[in-house]
């Protein structure tokens, strides 16, 4: 552990840290070890691919391509013309993988952001105010845990019409439960800390205390859930699309795999199955790696042992 880091921590422990020290420690931890750096690099690369998709694509992902002799290029293996081969309708798989990164990142980050914001707000309000507010909100969390997650998302999305927005909403409606429960426990212990009591005695209102003293302290935990949430949301979206209940107008890695599966092309077209799968794994592992180092930050006990 670097000296700066431990100084920062000592300072943090004494005063209840400001937003700036918190972010500083986070930055040092994120770039400390190799796996985290790899994780961040991979995520940044995928974001660049999503942003630059129009430039990177070699072909319109919906276009039905033909061979030189005029027949439709059905299930052509990788070649100079189609780097990752073609689908059963002669569509370019490389271009589909590139454009599929957009759906994955969009669902991943938006759903994770929504779940984290909802989960954290519920946790902070329940934990800080306690009493009947806490009881009520925690019963809602218990109830959210009783609903099977994937079936709920599938049915809700199909009832509301399949679209990316509805997938995001369906994920967010249930997934906030896990962050809410854990972060609330953290808030309960924070509430009794001396500096928060001091703030209360000094006349700070509840919302001021929540914003200035509670939230900066649960931020690392919230970011941990955000990082895990991105990975889960991406996997959930790909599952929903794989089950044929995704947005029919959007190319996602899950919907590509759905077609490879339902058309039976997977029996020989490995080039249709492997690229979307590897993309999902790469991106999700990257979010897990980042999540792991955020966890070290959120849980100081883990920092001592390496």
């Amino acid at each position: 552990m670097s000296r700066n880091l431990s100084e920062g921590l000592t300072l943090a422990a004494a005063t209840g840290p400001s937003w700036r020290t918190r972010l500083g420690i986070l930055r040092r931890i994120l770039f400390r070890d190799l796996s985290t750096a790899v994780g961040i690099t991979v995520i940044v690369l995928f974001v660049l691919v999503a942003l630059l998709a129009p430039v990177l694509m070699t072909d319109d992902p919906w276009a039905i391509n033909r061979r030189p002799n005029g027949t439709i290029a059905r299930l052509d293996p990788p070649s100079r013309a189609h780097w990752l081969g073609t689908t059963d309708l002669g569509r370019d798989i490389y271009s589909q993988v590139v454009v599929g990164s957009r759906a994955a990142l969009l669902v991943g980050f938006l759903a994770a952001l929504m779940t984290t914001v909802v989960g954290t707000s519920v946790a902070v309000i329940a934990g800080y105010f306690g009493g009947w507010v806490d009881d009520l909100l925690m019963r809602v969390v218990d109830f959210a845990y009783a609903v099977p997650f994937v079936p709920f998302v599938i049915i809700l999305v199909s009832l509301l019409k399949p679209s990316l927005a509805n997938v995001i909403i369906a994920i967010a409606l249930l997934y906030w439960r896990s962050s809410a429960r854990v972060i609330r426990a953290q808030v309960l212990s924070l509430r009794e800390r001396p500096y928060i009591k001091a703030a209360r005695v000094a006349g700070a209102g509840p919302w001021r205390i929540i914003y200035h003293h509670i939230t900066p302290n649960i931020l690392p935990l919230a970011m941990l859930y955000m990082a895990i949430g991105v990975g889960w949301a991406i996997i959930t979206e790909s599952s929903v699309s794989f089950l044929g209940l995704g947005d029919p107008l959007v190319i996602s890695w899950g919907s590509m795999l759905n077609l490879a599966f339902t058309t039976g092309a997977m029996q020989r077209a490995w080039w249709w199955v492997l690229p979307p799968g590897f993309s999902i794994i790469l991106l999700v592992v990257a979010t897990f790696l980042v999540g792991r180092s955020v966890e070290e930050y959120a849980n100081p006990r883990l920092r001592g042992e390496v």
């Binding site: 899950g254 599966f261 997977m266 799968g277 999700v284």
Partner: peptide, 22 residues
């Protein structure tokens, strides 16, 4: 385990089907 956790379970299933079944 991290990689198998990140791989959607249907994709692992498809790989197994491709190799061990087809």
């Amino acid at each position: 385990p991290l990689v198998f956790r990140a791989a959607p379970v249907f994709w692992t299933g498809m790989l197994f089907l491709m190799v061990f079944s087809y």
